[in-house]
Amino acid sequence: MGKPHNIGRIEAFSDAVFAFAATLMVVNFDMADNLAITKSNTTSFLSFFVSFFVLVAIWWVHYNFFRRTNYMDNVLIALNAILLFVALYYVFPLKTMVQSWMGEGVRSFEDLANLFVLYGVGFLLIFLCLSLMYYWAFKKTEQNADSLVLFFYARHFAIFVVVALISVVIAFSGIGLKFGFPGFVYGLIGPLCYWQSKHFTKTYESL
């Protein structure tokens, strides 16, 4: 007979990976030897600032998953491991993306397209893992009004996946790169999540 999984150890391991990702960002933070404030230093600081707080946001979303369910099995462990792997990978294209806003690191539209694709794939995989984790937990727990929260967030994060996929396709096609159009596509997340929330509430309000 199998023993129940220790969720505490899974959360502790996950937190260690997020801490390692933050450490990698610090190690890769560039500072001039004479501590002079230059454009390069400013760019490095801003890329570190944005990357760190995006990492915190991912950690917060991950933390909330474990607040909403006590269910755990091998499938969720595997999905969680993939999410952590991608989160480690995701930090570096994000830093490069911020540096490109400051006019550094990207020399051509092809470089910019590749960066948007790289960023989009990382974003897509992170929220695909989260969506699948929520859906799997919903399917494996007793379905009632409380468990519908899991189903709601499975659909909620599926929107992130779809929008990221659209952005990747646009970037790969080279459409609107001059104006950063693949990045502006992420602005669809807000309206679509709002619509999904209203539709979900209307559909399941009787439960």
Rank of each mutant, 00 (worst) to 15 (best):
Y204V: 06
L150G: 13
I37F: 09
A78K: 11
I189K: 07
V149M: 13
A57Y: 10
G176N: 05
I77Y: 03
R68D: 04
D73E: 08
F85A: 14
N144R: 01
F65A: 08
V185R: 03
F45K: 04
A145T: 10
F109H: 07
W136N: 04
M133V: 08
G187T: 00
N64S: 09
D73N: 13
Y194I: 15
V168C: 05
T43A: 15
A22L: 15
A81I: 11
K3P: 02
V61N: 10
S47L: 11
V54F: 11
F20S: 12
S131G: 06
F45H: 08
N114V: 05
L192Y: 06
A158G: 11
Y186S: 07
F151R: 12
V169Q: 01
F157T: 06
V185C: 04
V17S: 06
M25A: 14
L128H: 01
H156L: 11
G122S: 05
T38M: 03
K178F: 02
V86E: 12
T23R: 08
K95V: 04
N41E: 13
N28E: 12
K202L: 12
F20P: 09
M25K: 10
L112W: 05
F123M: 11
I58Y: 15
V161G: 02
F160G: 00
F123I: 03
L177V: 00
W195M: 12
L35S: 07
S173I: 02
F123W: 13
S51P: 05
D146H: 10
F92G: 06
Y71N: 03
L125F: 04
S197I: 07
L132K: 00
K139L: 10
K95N: 12
F184C: 00
L24G: 12
L76M: 15
R67A: 11
I159Q: 03
F45T: 09
S14T: 06
N6G: 04
P182L: 07
F181R: 03
F172Q: 07
H199P: 01
I189G: 05
L84K: 09
C193G: 11
N80M: 12
P191T: 05
T96D: 13
L79Y: 11
V161S: 06
N28Q: 14
N80L: 13
I58E: 10
D30K: 15
F179G: 00
A81D: 12
Y119G: 05
S14R: 01
F48A: 12
L24P: 03
T203S: 10
Y119S: 08
W195L: 15
S206H: 14
A32L: 10
A32E: 15
A22I: 13
E104R: 05
N74D: 14
K139H: 07
D111P: 11
K139Y: 03
D111Y: 04
G176C: 02
T96P: 00
Y71E: 02
N6S: 07
V54Q: 01
L132V: 01
T38R: 04
A32H: 14
C129P: 01
L76R: 09
T203D: 08
L112V: 00
M31T: 14
I170G: 03
F29V: 07
K178L: 07
F65L: 08
R68V: 00
P182W: 02
V149R: 13
A113F: 02
F127I: 03
